[in-house]
């Protein structure tokens, strides 16, 4: 059965919004590309279309997140984290998706240092994924 995300029924159990900073690194793949391609019916052109949107919107939302951290604007940070969470989960980038979810929760609760640390963690996780994204955009099959 095709699913948008590596979750159980209705995505309830696997997503941990309250993932804490001390959690063990998740054992999920950084990017479940195979599973994503199954959901896209193997449509590589559509994958590239989505990745173009992802790359552009991710950049914008990371920028907004940094500004929000500097200004302690937790509402803006929460909105940006929410958007990134949705994008990452939709693309089966589940580890980063969970970090974005944790960042959304931390920012909603105005936890400044946690938010900062989670944003750093999210960027590190994204650094591991983005070369693969670029390769897909260039048409290289990994």
């Amino acid at each position: 059965m095709a699913t948008w995300g590596n979750q159980g029924v209705r995505g309830v159990k696997m997503w941990k919004h309250d993932r804490s900073l001390a959690d063990e690194p998740a054992r999920q793949p950084k990017w479940a590309l195979k599973e994503l391609m199954e959901r896209l019916d193997g449509d590589r052109e559509f994958l590239r279309e989505l990745l173009v949107i992802f790359r552009q919107d991710l950049r914008v939302n990371l920028q907004k997140s940094h500004e929000a951290i500097v200004n302690s604007d937790y509402e803006q940070l929460s909105r940006a984290a929410h958007t990134m969470k949705g994008m990452l989960r939709n693309l089966s980038m589940d580890v980063a998706g969970e970090t974005a979810a944790a960042l959304e929760t931390a920012s909603r609760e105005s936890r400044g240092s946690d938010s900062k640390e989670l944003l750093e963690r999210l960027e590190k996780e994204l650094e591991e994924i983005l070369p693969e994204v670029e390769a897909q955009l260039a048409g290289v099959r990994l």
Partner: peptide
């Protein structure tokens, strides 16, 4: 419906 959505659902 919760996101990410399940296509069949």
């Amino acid at each position: 419906l919760t996101k990410p959505f399940n296509v069949d659902e």
